[in-house]
């Protein structure tokens, strides 16, 4: 497939929502279990890193350490939720459960199916943000004025990582191989995207690399700005970066999946 092939605009219909509904129904079956991780995980990190490590770090750029990492924890959760949903999750639905095969026998196309999967992945990111924002708010670690905007932003950030996950699900030869992008891409992002320390302490080339190729950097920046209540041009840049790169990756992920499934 040539470059135009990867960027071919998919024909998505409103029926993509039916796939979203299907995944939501499965999620609701185990609602209690599904709510627990986004509730517990940030608390564990906040206690261990914020209040534990924070005793020694004290402050970063004049901000208490626990306040510095609290928004990053939301960003990480946004990344994990949609990436895992649309990599391992979609792969299992596609390959093991044959759900996609069953759906394309109905008026839905594969474009609709993948779009529905991506929308659901993004929704999971948004669900996690909706749980974490109030929890972290209770600890008094975020500025409440703009923090609610983190929730809709989490949806678009989620779409970006859903599309990344879907690209890997489309090209992976088997489920075990999804471990490679997790190890080589997701885990470095978790550590080097300005999450637990500002990226300006890193060598300049690494900073450029992080800005250009590690999407989490931008998600962290935007969520941190909103959490701190700092509205400036860098916030706008981050949002636009996420929207543009996200849109391109959505198109590529759908075309990659079509290449795999439409034979």
């Amino acid at each position: 497939m040539n470059i135009q092939g990867y960027l071919k605009i998919p024909s998505i219909s409103i029926r993509a929502f039916k796939v979203w509904q299907r995944n939501r129904d499965v999620f609701m079956k185990d609602i209690k279990l599904n709510f627990l991780p986004p509730l517990l995980e940030p608390m564990l990190y906040l206690i261990a890193l914020g209040f534990g490590l924070g005793k020694f770090v004290e402050s970063i750029n004049g901000v208490p350490y626990v306040v510095f990492i609290a928004p990053a924890l939301i960003a990480v959760s946004v990344m994990y939720a949609s990436f895992f949903e649309c990599s391992y999750g979609s792969y299992v639905r596609m390959y093991y459960q044959k759900i996609f095969d069953a759906i394309v026998a109905t008026p839905l196309t594969i474009d609709d199916v993948i779009a529905g999967e991506l929308l659901w992945g993004a929704t999971r990111s948004m669900i996690n943000a909706s749980i974490m924002v109030p929890v972290i708010g209770i600890f008094g670690l975020i500025d409440l004025k703009y923090s609610l905007l983190i929730i809709p932003f989490a949806f678009f950030g989620g779409l970006l990582f859903a599309a990344i996950g879907m690209c890997f699900a489309a090209v992976t030869p088997n489920i075990m191989s999804i471990n490679y992008p997790v190890l080589l891409f997701i885990t470095p992002m978790f550590l080097f995207s300005g999450t637990f320390f500002p990226i300006d302490v890193l060598p300049l080339p690494v900073q450029y690399f992080a800005t250009a190729f590690l999407p989490l950097t931008h998600i962290v920046n935007v969520i941190r700005s909103l959490a701190f209540g700092v509205i400036d041009s860098s916030l706008l840049f981050g949002i636009i970066w996420v929207l543009i790169v996200g849109s391109i990756l959505i198109v590529i992920s759908i075309n990659l999946m079509k290449r795999r499934l439409v034979v």
């Binding site: 039916k18 299907r22 129904d25 044959k98 759900i99 069953a102 759906i103 109905t106």
Partner: peptide
């Protein structure tokens, strides 16, 4: 299809209901 591709996450009734939604 040749291979049963029922939705293993759902009951018999839910399988049919979820499928009916794909047809509006």
């Amino acid at each position: 299809p040749q291979e049963n591709n029922l939705d293993g996450d759902f009951t018999v009734y839910e399988n049919l209901l979820v499928y009916s939604r794909y047809f509006d």
